[in-house]
Design a protein around this nucleic acid. Structure first.
Lengths: 236, 236
DNA sequence: CGCTCTCTTGATAGACTTCAATGTTAGTGG
DNA sequence: CCACTAACATTGAAGTCTATCAAGAGAGCG
């Protein structure tokens, strides 16, 4: 899985591929809703998502919550702990997940020995940052309607890039509250936006499945430009 | 300058220090308001800010703008171009700036030869991302009042960390429009929030100088916790 | 079957925006 | 030294988007 992920970002030499394969991993399932790491933790390992969804978030006073990102299989959502000792946010499983834990030390040895792999992982954190910026645009300068549409576009492109979605349709195992906390909205308003999107025959979200009925229009109204996802590396 | 910056993040060995000193640089001044790199550019160099302020931003339809970050001397605001070919946002000088341009190739050679330096720069992009996340919290889950206060706290800590501010007072060479575009607000509302902060004897912004009159209270109302800036490395 | 979680909808309220006008400051040139 | 300009800051009034509160409807689960 990791080889596949890294290979999708940059070409790996055979030697690099073997080195990645040698990484020690502890595979462990975790039930949905459970935290993987919490704010203020100082983890000694990173995790690779083999199956399921996760999200990074932070809790604030009065029950407020901000979700920073959604993660899908192939992601390493806590790669930052490799170089930042203390977690400044938490990571939780949105669904039951299967995680492969890799000790920091092993990753550090790998990146020291193979600068190309270091660059590839580094690039991953840069894309991570690019997605944060795009979410900032959504919260700061887009309407709730556009923001929700944009999120659905983004998730589709990410899922499709790793072969987990096609035909503008995908499993979206998150609640409306999650969407609200990701976009800085209230759950009530998310519900209304979803209804509007449904009534306009753009998107239908039902029973955990998202169906994009009119992709061109959805991308247009949300001003979606996938450039920031930088999935173009190999095709460019 | 670069040595100082990197040294403030992690200890450099003498050899690493010498390698950094050998980096080829082209120093060039730029007038305020000018773009350094634009969205869709494919730069072949990064720039280190020697003097002045810069900001990263994106323009949207109907004159909307989202500012992603403010940068001060010592920052390398376009480090992402090292690994992401196409710029997904722009970088402009907020004030007249002095920039040191370093070719990508030189940085790549450096990071390949010195994994410790690679890790240090990588860490820098991780902190960059952490700041984005905190801004997301501000736009998504904090009131305008809190968000403005939080921004002032953040900038102070960043400036103080590089010795450019003390006594809870600093030069803030940005307009209210800039603040609005950074926080996803209107300039009118920023003005009102500033008035409120002034009337409550918390912060005064006048003639480009920011004066924090009551730091503890300001940090408290904005829920400011500097953990996410990760300036603790050497002291921890 | 009852419990809990999530979704849905209406009514009301508040935060923030937009529009528009005026005041202020700094810089420029006569 | 003063008029003139341009950019930035300030204020009021009106409007809109989104939040909050509240209540009911489904859906999944032991």
């Amino acid at each position: 899985m990791l080889v596949r992920k890294l290979g999708s970002i940059a070409r790996l030499s055979d030697e690099e591929r073997r080195a990645v394969m040698r990484l020690p991993m502890t595979i462990r399932p975790l039930p949905g809703g459970h935290d993987v790491v919490c704010e203020h933790d100082c983890p000694m390992q990173c995790c690779l998502i083999l199956d399921g969804w996760a999200s990074r978030y932070q809790l604030l006073a009065e029950g407020r919550r901000q979700i920073f990102s959604f993660h899908i299989p192939g992601d390493i959502p806590d790669l930052q702990s490799l170089h930042l000792r203390v977690m400044d946010h938490s990571l939780c499983a949105l669904t039951p997940v299967t995680l492969a834990f890799i000790p920091h030390e092993a990753i550090r040895d790998l990146t020291t020995g193979y600068p190309g792999i270091a660059a590839t992982l580094w690039r991953d954190t840069l894309v991570d940052g690019a997605i944060f910026r795009e979410w900032m645009v959504g919260m700061g300068r887009r309407s709730a309607y556009q923001a929700v549409a944009h999120l659905f576009c983004e998730i589709y492109v990410k899922l499709e890039a790793v072969g987990l979605a096609e035909n503008h349709r995908y499993k979206l195992p998150i609640t409306q509250v999650d969407i609200a906390d990701a976009l800085g909205l209230s759950n009530v308003h998310v519900n209304r936006v979803l209804r509007q999107l449904r009534e306009e025959n753009l998107v239908v979200l039902r029973n955990g499945w998202l169906n994009i009925l009119n992709w061109p229009e959805l991308a247009k109204i949300s001003e979606f430009d996938p450039l920031y996802l930088h999935v173009d590396r190999l095709t460019a």
